[in-house]
Amino acid sequence: MPDIADRPYDDAPVSTSKDQDAAVRIATAEAVEDRGDSFAGWAVTINRPSAELYAWWRDFSNLASVMENVEAIDVLDDKRSHWTVKAPGGTHVEWDAIVTEEREGELIAWASAEGADVANSGRVTFRDAGARGTVVTATILYDPPAGVIGKLVAKLFQREPNIQVRRDLARFKQLMETGEVATNAMNPKQREEQAA
C-alpha cells in the first residue's frame, strides 16, 4: 500500500511489518476499515492494462472463478455484494461486503457489513507498471473468529494468511494473461473433483 503515510520504520508495505499491532493501527487509520487484527497481503504483476484488470475485478461476480473456496458472490447493488464461502461438512460462512472506496482503474476498498460470519476488510490496488503490465496488490484485514468457524478460517488461509491471497492472485493472473486457470486434471471430471 504505497499510499499509506506515516510508516514507522521504512517504505515497505505495511502488511509486511513485523509489528502487526502497529501495522493494523496505521492501516485502519488510513486505508482500510477496522475489521480485525490479522493481516494478509501479496502483490502480482499481470501483463495486462490496469483498466481491464480493474473492470474485471470490479464485477465481483467474476471473483468466484479465481478464489478458492468461494462458492458464490451475488452482486446486490452497486456497492454491496453477498459472499458465500464453503465450509467443511457442507456448511457455509457468509457476509455482505460493501465497497468503501473506489478509484476507476486504481483502487477498490471494501469492508464486511454488520453480522458477518467472518469480519473482513481490505483493498486491491492496480498500479500501472509500464511494459510489465500492472502491479496488483491485495491487502486484507480479518478477524479470525473462535470455534468451528475459526478452524475454517485457519484452513481458508492455509498455514499462513498470505498463502491464500497468493494463490487467489496467481489464479487471477493466469486467467487474465492466458484466458484460463491452470489445472493438471486429465479430464473435466477430475477437475471438478479437485475443486470439490
Binding site: T45, N47, R132, Q174, A182
Partner: peptide, 22 residues
Amino acid sequence: CYHCGKHQYSGCENGNPADNQD
C-alpha cells in the same frame, strides 16, 4: 506472461496450478 515475453519460458508463471506453487 512477462517471462515468456522475454523467452525465459522455463520461468513461466501460468502453467503451474496455484496450489502447487507453494
